[in-house]
Amino acid sequence: MHDVMHGVLGLYNYWIVIILMMTGFYTVIARPNLVKKIIGLFIFQTSVFILFISMAKIEGGTAPIISEGARIYSNPLPHVLILTAIVVSLATTALALALVIRIREAYGTINEDDIHVQDEEA
């Protein structure tokens, strides 16, 4: 029982990562609406940020700024890595939305199924 509790509650941030990741992934695959797809993609990427941030936590560690009395610090490197990854994901989302705007201008719809139908007819 104790093990189960530890697995569910002690690692709750990893469970959140998995739930977010699967939610995002499912949205990307299942939704025909391109904007929703991109939202899904963004959630998917966000889950990975939480994964990285979680691994930076060190029990009893404080913020990684040298100060009197502090012995243990959190690992700052994953934070830095994820700042870069956030920028990347921001650029991806911006580019994807720009493409969706152009698709909407060209096809008059942002529904993937309708786009397929139009492509087949052409």
Partner: peptide, 27 residues
Amino acid sequence: GRRALTAALQYLVMGTIGATFILIGIG
């Protein structure tokens, strides 16, 4: 032609999933 746009978006979605998988692995 407009199909270039959908092709690019399709590549973007699959490529981002691929790159994110690599990021998870590296993490």
